[in-house]
Design a protein around this nucleic acid. Structure first.
Lengths: 155, 155
DNA sequence: AATTCGAGTGCAAAATTATGCAAAAAAGTT
DNA sequence: AACTTTTTTGCATAATTTTGCACTCGAATT
């Protein structure tokens, strides 16, 4: 063991302050700092540290410390977190399914936040029907909904 | 687009209730459910969903939804989260480095929780020196410290 | 209705990451 | 100090994931 402890700490430092997209990239930084190791070892280190390679809002992958994932996700899920929703379109209507009992709160939120693309909603127990404003595309609707419903994806 | 929306939802469901270790594994489940796609598409889906492949406590990799990562990590970091600590051993002494100002609170915690392996500590500003009990191995010390200092790794 | 535009995919190849095995180093024992 | 056990690591290779390119199909536009 040449210096695993020191190395682990440096790795933590590097990935918390830089955007690292691959192990080879990280490897080069470490070597530049004088560490002598291979990608195989790095792979094992990252696994032991429970570091995660996660796609950011931009769609780019980078390594994150577990604690950072917490922060990041919390920031990204300010509202409606865990309300697991699906959205399906048909003509000028979008139907949302959510957990039983959450439909009305979801509908309320939509009325409040997506009024630029939705002209009205009706909520049942686990379903919300939204009427899309004329001239608004599905993409725009999704864009808007995604901004506050984390379980929807926008690509 | 054959059924991307439905597929995404099913993926979410599968990875939240099963332990999926690879895209091929997930692919087979999806195909069994009647979806027709390739691993390439799955890779894109997972990226869009911001799904993350994370090592669990057991050291096994599996896919997680962002919201699950939050929960999981929060559970795993009950105390001392973010106090970023390094540990170095020398003989019967272990030296911990932490963020400036946190040493004394860390030392207090160690006195409280690790008294089965540590006979005493002294804290400076960002450093804690701990004296290891005779007959206790480094491994045991790490084991103990790791239980409440998440930034330490035990492998 | 014809045309344009972009999302969604498959294919195949490139890129990246994980791991079995064996050797070296460190830690723990006697 | 000699010996045993556990860790750590490299090498080579397997396994897994990502991506460029081309094509299809439906939606939006003219």
């Amino acid at each position: 063991m040449r210096n695993k402890n020191k190395r682990i700490n440096v790795i933590r430092e590097i990935i918390s302050s830089n955007k690292i997209a691959s192990q080879d990239e990280l490897l080069k930084l470490l070597m530049a700092k004088g560490f002598d190791l291979t990608q195989a070892t790095l792979s094992r280190d990252l696994k032991a540290m429970k570091v995660v390679k996660a796609p950011d809002a931009n769609g780019e992958y980078s390594y994150r410390l577990p604690s950072e994932v917490v922060q990041t996700e919390q920031q990204r899920l300010p509202y409606m977190a865990g309300v697991s929703v699906s959205a399906d379109f048909s003509g000028n209507v979008v139907v949302l399914h959510t957990r039983a009992g959450y439909a009305s709160s979801l509908a309320y939120r939509i009325d409040d936040e997506a009024d630029d693309v939705i002209i009205g909603t009706v909520a049942g127990e686990d379903t919300v029907i939204c009427i899309i404003k004329e001239g608004v595309t599905k993409k725009q609707v999704l864009e808007s909904l995604c901004s506050f419903i984390p379980s929807l994806i926008k690509d």
